Amino acid sequence: TDDTVAVAEAAGARVLRTPYGMGNGAAIKRGARAARGEVIVFMDADGQHDPAHIDTLLARLADGHDMAVGARDASGQASRHRGLANGLYNRLASWMTGHRVADLTSGFRAVRAGKFREFLHLLPNGFSYPTTITMAFFRSGYPVAYVPIPVHQRVGTASHIRPLKDGIRFLLIIFKIATLYSPLKLFVPAALAFFALGLGWYGYTFSETGRFTNMSALLMSAGVITFFMGLISEQITGLTYLAAREEDEG
């Protein structure tokens, strides 16, 4: 609907076209497959990011990191509500991964192409590819660096991200990736909660009626079952990842 293609081609870029709108994530995956270099740089196309900062990201890759992300501060958020939501995502992702995640949803990043392509099958076709790839890199032990960058006001139409719907989607993807790479991180707290509730209910009913109730047994059993589900999931995840790594090296 504008002159983006003509301007890009005039500047020497190779432009990929799709027959219909496939989504932001689908475009990212198509571009990653078509890229020929060892490093891929992603930027939002709304004027927020300054190409002058690409060298700063590449410098972090030269330091030994596998992905460098341009991190926005509070002033770089599209709105106050968006800033609060992103802050929540960052804290939750930091807890999941055990590493500080400064900007989970930033679209400005440089990454080693080979490692990025390992996770193409995990990336959604819509928004939130930054969430998925960030969690995947941390869980796989690939070093990630965050570089503070200033951002500009958006140019053109308003953001297509819907805060409520896409916010829920972001959270679901975080849990999906955490479950894929570290299921016990989710299952153990749930198991402890069930078991503690059952134990507490048993203490209450025993003091009141002097007996062990079915509800206590159900809650405590749910805790034990949930724990073993997490343990089995952890083993399956480890074997799956080991097989994928051996296939990639072979």
Rank of each mutant, 00 (worst) to 15 (best):
S106D: 09
G21R: 04
V147N: 05
H65S: 13
G198T: 01
T97V: 06
G200A: 14
L171V: 06
G238W: 07
A110M: 13
Y204H: 09
T213M: 02
T132R: 06
R72V: 02
D73G: 15
R14T: 14
A193D: 01
A244L: 10
G83Q: 12
D50Y: 08
A6K: 15
S182H: 14
L58M: 09
L219K: 05
G200Q: 12
G230T: 09
S221A: 13
Y89A: 10
G230P: 00
Y146T: 01
A222C: 14
G23K: 08
I174G: 02
A102G: 07
F187Q: 08
D66A: 09
W201P: 00
A85F: 15
R60N: 09
A78R: 12
G25A: 11
A11Q: 10
G203S: 11
G21A: 06
H160W: 03
I174N: 10
D103H: 12
P143R: 06
T4D: 13
A32F: 07
F195P: 02
H65P: 00
V15F: 02
H49W: 13
T157P: 00
A27N: 15
S216M: 04
T97G: 03
L192I: 12
W201T: 04
S207Q: 14
V111M: 15
L219C: 11
E234W: 11
M135E: 08
L122M: 02
Q235A: 13
G37A: 11
D248T: 14
D50W: 07
P148R: 05
R91N: 05
I168M: 11
A26T: 08
P124G: 06
R154K: 07
L231V: 10
T237G: 14
F187L: 05
R100T: 14
G87L: 03
A102T: 14
F137H: 09
E38P: 02
I174D: 04
N125T: 13
A35G: 06
D66P: 00
S75H: 11
L186F: 04
I133E: 06
F187W: 15
V7E: 14
D248H: 15
D2Q: 04
Y20A: 09
H160A: 08
F170S: 13
G98M: 08
H121W: 10
M96N: 01
G76C: 02
S233W: 10
Y181T: 09
Y129M: 00
L58W: 04
I149W: 09
G210M: 01
R211Q: 06
S128N: 11
S79Y: 03
A193S: 04
R109D: 10
W95H: 11
T56G: 01
E247H: 11
P189A: 02
R14V: 09
R245H: 13
I174A: 05
A34Y: 10
G21I: 01
